[in-house]
Amino acid sequence: MSEEKIKQAFVKALAIPEEQVKDSLEYNSIKEWDSTAHMILIAELEDVFEVMLDTDDIIDMSSYAKAKEILRKYDIDC
């Protein structure tokens, strides 16, 4: 299911253990999710779901919960 794919994208892009990926996980709240990792994460999500995220999405994607909300906008069921 898509949520699992999002979770794995976070694990891979941020190089963090799966347990750390929760709704409350916020951008810039851990050193692994800084602006460099953010770009890697965006690219990973685009690859996995074959979407093109725009600049508003990148700025709005401030947490794991928010990432799911944004992907739902692109008809991803998660």
Binding site: M52, T55, D56, I59
Partner: peptide
């Protein structure tokens, strides 16, 4: 973190005017 976030948010808003929203 808040000031850094505000800076990148505003930078993106400005640049959207010159580049559009697409990356």
């Amino acid at each position: 973190a808040d000031t850094a976030k505000l800076q990148s948010r505003v930078l993106v808003k400005i640049m959207q005017e010159w580049l559009g929203k697409q990356r």
